[in-house]
Design a protein around this nucleic acid. Structure first.
Length: 764
DNA sequence: TGTGATAACATTTTT
DNA sequence: TGTTATCACA
């Protein structure tokens, strides 16, 4: 017992040792939250709770793995191994496989990633005759996804639909669900929804039902990052916690950064009300950062109205000020970042792996990568195009998925003509039509290809060859090890040879990727001899970006601020603190004040990742979308400066010639903005100097724009007429010259982004 | 049916 | 700017 409680501060110890009933741990950044969770679980196990009676839900698989390792050290590896620990999605996927038959699936159901979902939605739209030009499939997908996250059924969605777009989504949503069901597939959101469906199955006389079973099984439930759970996750927890109520949640409202994908901060704010008798513990001592870093973060977050009041303090040293650097453009920013990293590595005797560069959008990474490469500094990049999302990998995975689940129509469509084998789009149209008429999956329709009308005899031959190939490998599954099977499949389908013939650099790197994938499979089955292709596929589809990063290499880490949640680094550089970028300016003009608060929390997360040094950068102009756009420093800069623990410099301060060219460029460009200049919906200040004090933006961007046609002016709120969409109201205007765009709300067609050059709008 | 060229799109963040 | 979707043409 002493071993587990030793070394904890009084608040941590209290939070660890109060084992029963509902518990909420409000854990500030760097307050030893993971430590409390791991020690709490260790203590449970030590006091006699069996490991498989503990369910611990984390935000990433990596977090789960690290916690398991730490618990293994506190108790024993055997005990740690049997804990039910993982992300919501992976834990419930596992449970769903067990009970798949109860909800009309087979245990080898496929998990569709967002690309698969998007394709499935496009096909549904095709069948329903909904034009992809008028209704963006991606927008449809995100609508459906957020409906699912909020537990809104297709029927309810239809009732709530008020505008034309929602009405179309209401038609697509149920059809998309049917397509998933037919393909024996679930999307990410379904993993949560189907879990609820499963738990809500009624008990029968001879079976108490899954809910009773899992309530009984999981005696203790712990949820990490509770502030980022959505309604579906909340509903699952609520059911599982049931009457036992041994539920522990850990979270920090100040670090809620996923509202955009349905996370409901209300879950943490209302916890006490939901679970009467809740014990609340607060962890307020920060062990991670210097006083100066913490002061800057605190000063920033104070500007949010919505928050649980708390006082985070540290006994760490004061440290250096948070350094804010003004840069000329993204290239200059990259060099300034590189300089800061080199300087700190030298001064503090650190490794490159102690440094991280964080940014708002993945697109920003390119310039920073270039900068690092120029200086020959190795780096690791988290996210971007993840390995398992690359075309060539998805092709190979497609075959594997098809072997495991023949009804997976997305995989079938992907591989049936990859590499080309003469089964084209027209043929597959006929097959799909037949499948729809007979309410079958595409694969069953292929089985009946001789009866499918309209298919040419040559295509029929090719399809027979294709199905024979699949049958052969299905039969081989029992005779070969999974990795041998995949290797031989890649060999027989000529996927590698095709790339060899291409003889380009990209083809070479794709071949290397496939090779790497093959060795990854071999490693996986070597490490887990009992694993199946199903479990391999599941692991691959539920990997998060952070999970895939390689932490062993001694290199600078590059990632988005979102990915950085839960991590810490001695040196942290945050890039791109500019209005329009961070806080980001959404494409449509109107901005919910809550969005700004979420952006602010995101920066709070970023700053509090830093242990010893924190650097903040912004550029006065930046190449975005192939054109140079000027930007103002982020409002957040001024907010952290109020802490008095920052210093503000220019990256070109030591280089007079650069300073000269900078002000020249500023002059050069400034005349372009004479009048009412607008970029990204914001009026630009004409002189750099003014920008530090000129921070009084209105929340609603006031935009005005001089049309190419003389005399007409488009302003926010103006009423306009469009050939196809009819009358509408201007919500926002962005860009200038040929690139100028307007967001217009049309009563019948919803919100549209129009290029003014082509839209030919008439001002009414 | 397969291909190359051109147009259109995209930049918010992700399991 | 860079990548993907669509269209003409072979």
């Amino acid at each position: 017992m002493s071993k587990i409680l030793a070394g904890l501060n009084p608040a941590q110890r209290a939070a660890v040792s109060h084992l029963n009933g509902p518990v909420m741990i409000v854990a500030g950044a760097g307050s030893g939250k993971t430590r409390v969770l791991t020690h709490r679980i260790a203590l449970l196990v030590e006091s006699g709770v069996r490991p498989w009676q503990v369910l611990a839900l984390t935000f990433t698989n990596k977090a789960a793995k690290e916690m398991k390792e730490r618990i293994a050290l506190l108790v024993s590896p055997e005990l740690a191994r049997d804990l039910w620990m993982g992300t919501f999605h992976s834990v419930f996927a596992r449970i769903l496989r067990r009970h798949a038959a109860d909800i009309g699936y087979t245990s080898s159901f496929t998990i569709y990633d967002s690309d698969d979902s998007l394709n499935a939605i496009k096909q549904v739209m095709n069948v329903l005759g909904i034009s992809k030009d008028q209704f963006n499939a991606n927008a449809v997908r995100s609508r459906i996804s957020s409906a699912k996250n909020q537990l809104i059924s297709p029927e309810e969605y239809e009732r709530l639909a008020r505008d034309l777009f929602s009405e179309q989504v209401a038609r697509i949503y149920p059809e998309y669900n049917r397509a998933l069901r037919l393909a024996n597939a679930m999307d990410f959101d379904d993993l949560l929804l189907k879990t609820i469906e499963l738990l809500d199955l009624p008990a029968t006389p001879d079976n108490a039902g899954p809910l009773a079973y899992y309530q009984q099984k999981f005696k203790y439930i712990l949820v990490d990052e509770y502030q980022d759970t959505n309604r579906a996750q909340y509903a699952i927890i609520k059911r599982l916690a049931g009457t036992q109520g041994n539920l522990t949640v850990v979270g920090d409202d100040a670090q809620s950064i996923y509202a955009f994908r349905g996370a409901d901060i209300g879950n943490i704010l209302d916890f006490e009300r939901d679970y009467p008798g809740t014990q609340i513990f607060r962890l307020e001592q920060n062990y991670r950062s210097t006083k100066n870093i913490l002061a800057a973060a605190d000063e920033l977050i104070k500007n949010n109205k919505d928050q649980i009041p708390k006082t985070l303090f540290t006994e760490n040293v004061r440290g250096e000020p948070v350094k804010i650097t003004q840069c000329l453009d993204e290239r200059d920013e990259a060099s300034a970042i590189v300089r800061a990293i080199e300087e700190q590595v030298r001064a503090l005797k650190l490794d490159l792996k102690d440094c991280a560069v964080l940014y708002r959008t993945n697109a920003q990474s390119r310039a920073i990568e270039d900068g690092l490469r120029r200086q020959g500094i190795p780096y690791n990049i988290v996210g971007g195009t993840a390995f398992y999302k690359r075309k060539e990998i998805k092709d190979v995975l497609g075959y594997v998925r098809l072997l495991v689940n023949p009804n997976d129509s997305e995989s079938l469509l992907r591989v049936i003509n990859t590499p080309p084998r003469g089964i084209g789009a027209t043929t597959m149209e006929h097959v799909a039509a037949y499948a729809r008429d007979h309410r079958q999956s595409l694969m069953s329709a292929l089985g009946a290809i001789d009866f499918v009308p309209g298919v040419q005899s040559r295509a029929i031959q090719r399809i027979h060859e294709f199905t024979r190939l699949l049958q052969k490998y299905t039969a081989l599954r029992d005779k070969m090890s999974p990795s041998e099977l995949v290797r031989s499949l890649v060999d027989e389908t000529n996927l590698l040879q095709e790339l060899k013939l291409e003889n380009t650099i990209e083809a070479l790197s794709r071949r290397e990727n496939i090779q790497e994938f093959l060795s990854a499979i071999t490693d996986y089955f070597h490490e887990k001899p009992d694993a199946t292709l199903e479990s391999f596929l599941e692991e691959v589809s539920l990997l998060s970006e952070v999970d895939q990063s390689d932490g062993t290499k001694n290199a600078v880490t590059l990632m988005t601020l979102h990915s950085a949640k839960g991590l810490e680094y001695p040196v942290v550089c945050i890039a791109g603190l500019e209005e329009g970028l961070f806080p980001s300016q959404p494409v449509g003009g109107t901005r919910d004040p809550n969005d700004i608060e979420e952006e602010r929390r995101l920066l709070y997360v970023g700053i509090t990742r830093a242990m010893r040094r924190c650097f903040v950068f912004y550029a006065i102009e930046r190449l975005r979308f192939g054109e140079t756009a000027r930007a103002l420093p982020s409002r957040f800069i001024e907010e952290i400066e109020r802490s008095g623990t920052t210093e503000h410099v220019t990256s070109f301060g030591t280089k007079p010639h650069l300073r000269e060219s900078a002000s020249e460029r500023t002059r050069e460009i400034s005349h372009l903005f004479a009048g009412s200049p607008v970029i990204n919906g914001r009026t630009f200040a004409r002189k750099r100097r003014e920008t530090h004090t000129a921070h009084s933006f209105e929340d609603e961007p006031r935009a005005s724009y001089s049309q190419i046609e003389e005399g007409t002016t488009l302003e926010h709120g103006a009423r306009v007429f469009h050939e196809t969409f009819g009358e509408g109201r201007v919500i926002a205007v962005a860009g200038f010259g040929d690139k100028a765009k307007a967001t217009v709300e049309f009563p019948k067609f919803g919100r549209k982004n129009l290029m003014l050059k082509f839209a030919n709008l008439k001002v009414l």
